[in-house]
Simulated assay, not measured.
Amino acid sequence: MLNTRRKLSVEPKPSNGEPNLIVAFATQDRRHVDQHFGSARCVMIYNVDATQWSLLEAVEYCSVDEDRHAKLPTRISDLSELNCSAIFCNACGVSAIRQLLENGINPIKVHLDTDIHSLISGLQQQLLGEPMGWVKRALKAHSGLQGQKRNQGERPTPDSDRLSQLMDEEW
Rank of each mutant, 00 (worst) to 15 (best):
S63W: 07
P73H: 04
S80V: 01
T51P: 08
M1L: 05
T74L: 10
D115H: 10
G104C: 01
M44R: 06
H142I: 01
V94W: 07
H142C: 03
E11M: 09
Q165G: 11
C92W: 01
I105C: 03
A70I: 07
E130D: 13
G153F: 11
E154P: 08
G93H: 09
G144H: 13
R6H: 10
Q152M: 13
E81H: 15
Q125F: 08
Q126T: 02
V10C: 07
V135L: 00
R75M: 15
K71E: 12
S160F: 05
Q28K: 13
L123G: 01
G133D: 02
F37D: 03
T74S: 10
C84M: 09
V10N: 04
I45A: 00
T114C: 12
D159R: 05
K136Q: 02
L163Q: 13
Y46N: 11
P19Q: 08
D161N: 10
A50R: 14
V110W: 02
E66L: 15
G147E: 14
R6N: 07
N20W: 09
R137D: 07
T114V: 13
S160I: 04
E57I: 03
R68L: 13
H117R: 06
L145K: 08
P73D: 03
A24Q: 04
E169D: 14
D65H: 07
S15F: 02
